[in-house]
Amino acid sequence: MKKFYYLSTCDTCKRILSELDLPSDFARQDIKTDPITGADLEALRHLAGSYEALFSKRARLYKERGLKNQTLREADYKNLILEHYTFLKRPVTVLGDRIFIGNAAKIVSATKEALHS
Rank of each mutant, 00 (worst) to 15 (best):
T12F: 01
T12H: 06
C13D: 15
R15L: 06
I16P: 12
I16T: 10
L17A: 11
S18Q: 15
E19D: 15
E19L: 13
L20A: 10
L20V: 12
L20E: 12
D21T: 14
D21R: 14
L22Q: 09
L22A: 05
P23D: 15
S24Y: 05
F26S: 11
A27E: 15
R28I: 13
R28V: 13
Q29H: 09
Q29W: 09
Q29V: 14
D30K: 10
D30M: 09
I31N: 11
K32S: 00
T33A: 11
T33M: 01
D34G: 01
P35N: 02
P35F: 02
T37A: 08
T37Y: 03
A39H: 12
A39D: 14
D40V: 09
D40N: 11
L41C: 11
E42N: 15
L44Y: 15
L44K: 09
L44W: 13
L44A: 14
R45P: 04
R45T: 10
R45C: 10
R45Y: 08
H46N: 11
L47K: 07
L47V: 04
L47Y: 05
A48L: 05
A48Y: 04
G49A: 07
G49D: 06
Y51V: 05
E52P: 00
E52V: 00
A53M: 04
A53F: 00
L54M: 01
F55G: 03
F55E: 03
F55N: 05
F55P: 12
S56H: 06
K57D: 05
K57C: 05
R58H: 14
R58W: 01
A59C: 06
A59H: 05
A59K: 09
R60W: 09
Y62N: 07
K63N: 14
K63I: 10
E64R: 09
E64I: 07
R65F: 06
R65K: 13
R65E: 14
G66V: 01
L67K: 01
L67H: 03
L67A: 01
K68H: 07
K68F: 00
N69K: 10
N69I: 03
N69D: 12
Q70H: 02
Q70Y: 01
Q70C: 04
Q70F: 00
Q70T: 04
Q70L: 12
T71D: 07
T71N: 08
